[in-house]
Design a protein around this nucleic acid. Structure first.
Lengths: 208, 208, 208, 208
DNA sequence: CATGAATGAGTCTTCATTCAT
DNA sequence: GATGAATGAAGACTCATTCAT
């Protein structure tokens, strides 16, 4: 989403600095939570002056939003990629669930941060940003609904429900399995190791 | 959970005041988020002096926890009741989903608050309380798994997956449908009006 | 100073209650210091309602002053008694030093409280009360100066200095010895056991 | 004790600011007492923002301790210097008393503050710092005892008492004379003008 | 341009005091 | 008269943000 290919050197440096700030912020935020991290801390970790942070981001909240947006981007892009891979519908869905499990496994702290501030977000820091992430997510859900629809049209799936509803169901179902793992990795390790555990429940009714 | 039946008048008044504080706090928290609400605001809204709040709750966090605990208690109790009603397994699950939909409909702000701070909450205010709510929820999931197990034993369900996994699946699936409604009630009204939309997806594979 | 001899019953009860409050306050104050004791605590310890305290004392400071006044009274009275006992000048002074040592020994916490708030008192709670205690103390110093004067007139003391100055000297000298013991009782036990250690230093020059 | 000679400009400014804060705090504390002075007041008087105070001192108590420590340092250093000046024992002791009288005269508010919170301080703010000041004072008393001891060995003093006891006696005796002046400068002016008034009382017995 | 010292509004919390019962 | 629940002013401290260097 953020590309730094053919930019003037100056611009590329800017972008790199921005990334460095975001990376430091991510580490701190996901470790201590939004309100327990001060701009001074971020500045120190990123090895910039506090004032410099304000050259890149209007304020703390702006920085935070940029961070979440980047995380959301990254994840949805990964899911999208998994779903767009050549193959049949079952393979695509399996790819999605596997990609999601991997994303959770590889980025547990990030995810914790993302979801801790993202649900019912009306009242938290995200307030205004909601729409941007929501759109991305809705786009993805639509794309996944397309998979179900195509699968049905091609008779590889039984038409057990509205395709969009199935997309919602799959998302919620995998979320819950992976959240469980997130909350207690030791006890629910199987969920990230074998993503099919969640997926198959849906398939039992879906596959003919 | 909180009974105010045959208590001395003084005690009943205390309880009523406590409730009033909690109600005001809930309204403010769910509107503006934990960190954006001051004790002064709560006091004003509840029409008590600041100091009075501290007669009921040790500090802001304590008040907040009491609130979430109450919400969690209330909901899990409602779900438990629905699931324990006499009837067959299908009826019980249907009852759960209906109760959950009703709970969401009746308590949208509460729920937003509850879920906004409850997922991946390691770094936020809940920290210590987590365990209490988590236990309650795990107890409930176990109970629901029991329903699935019994249904399977009685051949009313196909044994398509581990009963506990089914419980997780149903919870996640309904959550996602209801969250969608929570985020955009106008557009997803059908989810709370017809809880079976979500439930049936699971049933398609489950029912023989 | 406070007598409860021939008073109407009602009055005597009042006085007893007042004493009970003061006693509780003394215990708390000398244990935790003025600012770390709340009226609520005193009320609880004395087994009265908070409001009742305010029937006896205008406010916290007033209660505190009454307490210190009582302590000062008690001590100065004891010193005065020692000094007025029949006998020669040397005996009277010895009596004073012994009484003071005993007072320190018997009332260490009290004294700590008294002196912690009494020196250079302009800025602390005592502010206004100063004068009352100061007068009492000045009266006592004057009385002690009288002893020295009489001793000189009777040729039992050499006239090595102004009698009032000698009184000041003796007071300061014994204070310092006893404070030392107060700060570190284990290490300076001899000072309260043998009051003459301090006194003799003065006598060496004083006695012919 | 605090040197600001050859430091980088920045550092010197820091130190100057710190001193300005301490000076303002001293003035306020000695006028109104520790607990009656707010950080806001100190900040205003020193013409800094409240937050700036917290760049220099961890909290109010820390600021207070720094202040007292500085005062104690300064005074004990002055006394030590007086006592170490070349000369015989009588001269040294005389130097000490004169230095002390001068210190009292020049720093009345400081001293009032110092002694008001330093005696029997177990329950007040000093608690933890006690030891530091106490050690310094004990060191000084020991040094003064050394003077007495040397004087005795050289037959310039009669061996009328334990040298350490004499040190205690001299300290207490001068304290009391000077406190009297502190409490009522008009009436007891002679004490700071002629320090020998106090000293001679001791000498009468001490000198052969 | 980058810096980071200085700012001060805003927060939670305590507790002396009042007054309806 | 006694009670103690309710009050709210006041205080310590934090930290996002600014701006002179």
């Amino acid at each position: 989403v953020i590309k730094d290919e053919k930019l003037p050197r100056r611009e590329r440096e800017k972008l790199a600095q921005r990334q460095e700030i975001l990376a430091s912020a991510l580490e701190l935020f996901s470790e201590k939570g939004y309100r327990n991290v001060s701009m001074a801390e971020i500045a120190e970790k990123a090895e910039f002056a506090i004032g410099t942070l304000y050259k890149f981001f209007e304020n703390k909240e702006d920085l935070y939003r940029a961070l979440l947006l980047q995380v959301a981007d990254k994840f949805l892009a990964a899911f999208m990629t998994a779903i767009e891979k050549p193959g049949d519908e079952v393979g695509k869905l399996r790819g999605y669930v596997a990609a999601k499990a991997k994303a959770f496994r590889d980025n547990a702290p990030m995810i914790r941060l993302y979801f801790s501030e993202t649900h019912g977000a009306r009242q938290n820091v995200l307030a205004g940003m909601d729409s941007r992430v929501r759109e991305m997510r809705e786009g993805f859900l639509g794309r996944m609904a397309g998979i179900f629809e195509s699968g049905m049209r091609r008779r590889r799936f039984r038409r057990i429900a509205d395709p969009y509803h199935l997309a919602i169901a799959l998302e919620g179902l995998t979320n819950n399995f992976l959240f469980l793992w997130l909350d207690d990795p030791a006890h629910h390790a199987s969920f990230v190791e074998d993503p099919d555990i969640a997926l198959n429940i849906l398939f039992k009714g879906l596959l003919p």
